[in-house]
Structure formats: structure tokens, C-alpha cells
């Protein structure tokens, strides 16, 4: 009886260890990820809608969320442009040190965010290498929202490069040649043939960069200045609420951000599904 149900649940296989490994996977996933996240959801559900609404529409929370999202969108957009350019240059052109540059792209993934944070602050502070060049122009970067954008640009830089690169590399050279034989100029080929094929990858990278930026904490808090209503990001507000032992406040903001992140994840998956269906390959 149970055997029959089991058979329907999975296709039979001669390989052993399915029960053991799946059981362990589910137990570990539940223990480490699902149950703790459920605790967060449970806690915020316990607050009631009125409380969540009050906390979410609190002026300081709103300012923090607006800043987190605004800065993330700007950073992701900067990276969409430069990431595409970098991917293009790395895949299509050869120049000395190309391999090194390619390896360096992943630095923001490998460098601890706190290290990135203090390094960027040192660079963009009014007496820093870049900061002192900008100061005479009246441009203040560190301890302002611009600094936040810089930090987020740094940490989300690899996403678009790394999603576009493999697609660009696999792109059949023949479609460009076909466009050329049909009389398209190089510019038209890029704009009408290549860009549309890269779009799903760009969107996926954009969404990943956005998701990462919105949640980012370590690299931002050093450079941001953390002035409430001005340069205070949402994750920092969670930490502040937590340090005030205001668990309800922290939970409500966290739940909001989590909901947004999951929506983002859904969007990424939809893009990829749509992409697979339309072009026959994922990005």
C-alpha cells in the first residue's frame, strides 16, 4: 500500500540512498532555513495587521525602505550598463590581462562586505584618494546616499556580468552574420538582434543584483553615515530596532523585506521559465 504511494511519488530507480539523502536534506533544510523563517512569519503574524501597518508606514521606516530600494535600483541600473559592457569586452575582445580582469570580476563575492565597506569609505571620505578629487567640485560621496549607491554598485557588480557572459559566449555567431547578410548595419545588429537575445540574462542579473543590494548591510553601514531619514538603510533599521529590544519593530520590517525578496525570487524564476520556453535555454 505505502509502497504504491511511494512509487507514485518518485520514479523507481536501482540506485540506493534516496530515502536517506532526501530525508536528511529535508530535515536539514527545515531546521536551518524553513523553521527559522517560519518563526519570523509567525512572529509578524502575531503582531496583527494594525501594528505592521503602523510600523511599515512610520516615517523613518518609509524613508529607510525608500532609500534601500532607490539606491538599489540605481546601483543595479549602473551595473546593467557597465556589466553588459564588461561582459561584451571580456567575451568578444582580447587584450592583455583579460583573464585577470575576468577573475577580478568576482572580487565583490569573495571580499567580505565589512572589508569592502571600510575600503570604500577610506576611498570616498573627503580626505580619501577619490574623495579629495571630488571635494573641490562640491561633491560629497561618503556619508551621503551617493556613498550607498557606490557601495551597492560594488557588491552587485558581478551579477549582470556573470549572467550575461555565458549567454553571450554561447550565442551563435551565425545570427550576427545572418543579420549582416540581410543588410543590417553593425549598430542595427547589436540593437535588434543581440540585445533582445541577451535581455532575459540581463533581466535575471538585474533582479539578482537588486535582491542582493536591498538586503546588503556590511558594505553600506560604514560609508552611509547612517543619519535617520537621510542615509539609514532598511537592514540597518532592523539592527537598530533589535538593539533597542524592539523585536516587533525589527520583525515587521524584516517581514516586509522578506516578502519583497521572495517576490523578486519569483520574478527571477518566471523570467527563466519564460526564457526557456521561448528560446529553449536558461540563462
Amino acid at each position: 500500500m505505502s509502497d504504491a504511494i511511494f512509487m507514485r511519488f518518485r520514479q523507481p530507480s536501482v540506485l540506493p540512498g534516496f530515502g536517506l539523502t532526501l530525508g536528511f536534506t529535508l530535515a536539514y533544510l527545515s531546521g536551518i532555513v524553513l523553521i527559522p523563517l517560519a518563526a519570523l512569519i509567525l512572529k509578524s503574524a502575531g503582531l496583527g495587521w494594525a501594528d505592521i501597518w503602523r510600523i511599515a508606514t512610520d516615517a523613518r521606516t518609509l524613508a529607510a525602505l525608500r532609500l534601500s530600494f532607490g539606491a538599489s535600483f540605481i546601483a543595479a541600473s549602473i551595473n546593467a550598463v557597465f556589466g553588459l559592457l564588461l561582459a561584451w569586452v571580456l567575451v568578444r575582445y582580447s587584450f592583455p590581462g583579460r583573464r585577470l580582469v575576468d577573475a577580478m570580476i568576482d572580487l565583490p563575492f569573495a571580499l567580505p562586505t565589512a572589508v569592502a565597506g571600510i575600503a570604500l569609505t577610506a576611498l570616498y571620505a573627503p580626505n580619501g584618494w577619490i574623495g579629495q578629487l571630488l571635494a573641490p567640485l562640491g561633491l560629497k560621496v561618503a556619508y551621503t546616499p551617493i556613498g550607498i549607491v557606490i557601495a551597492l554598485t560594488f557588491i552587485s557588480l558581478p551579477f549582470i556580468v556573470r549572467t550575461v557572459e555565458p549567454v553571450l559566449r554561447d550565442l551563435d555567431r551565425e545570427i550576427e552574420e545572418a543579420a549582416a547578410t540581410l543588410g543590417a548595419s553593425r549598430g542595427q545588429t547589436l540593437l535588434r538582434v543581440l540585445l533582445p537575445s541577451l535581455m532575459p540574462a540581463i533581466l535575471t542579473g538585474y533582479a539578482l543584483a537588486l535582491a542582493r543590494s536591498i538586503g546588503e548591510y556590511g558594505s553600506v553601514i560604514f560609508i552611509a553615515g547612517n543619519i535617520p531619514y537621510v542615509s539609514e538603510i532598511a537592514p540597518l533599521l532592523i539592527v537598530i530596532r533589535l538593539e533597542e529590544f524592539n523585536y516587533a519593530g525589527a520583525t515587521a520590517i524584516a517581514a516586509l523585506m522578506l516578502a519583497i525578496s521572495f517576490t523578486m525570487l519569483l520574478v527571477i524564476n518566471l523570467i527563466q521559465t519564460w526564457n526557456r520556453r521561448r528560446f529553449g535555454h536558461g540563462s
Binding site: 523563517l37 518563526a39 539592527v239 524584516a254 522578506l258
Partner: peptide, 17 residues
């Protein structure tokens, strides 16, 4: 999933638990 969760929230969930 953990990749799409803010690190701060990753810490917070254990505090709540």
C-alpha cells in the same frame, strides 16, 4: 532561498527563535 534573504534577517530569525 538563503541567497535571497538579507544577511541581517538571517541573523534575526535565529534571535526570534
Amino acid at each position: 532561498l538563503p541567497f535571497s534573504v538579507s544577511p541581517v534577517i538571517s541573523g534575526l530569525v535565529y534571535v526570534l527563535l
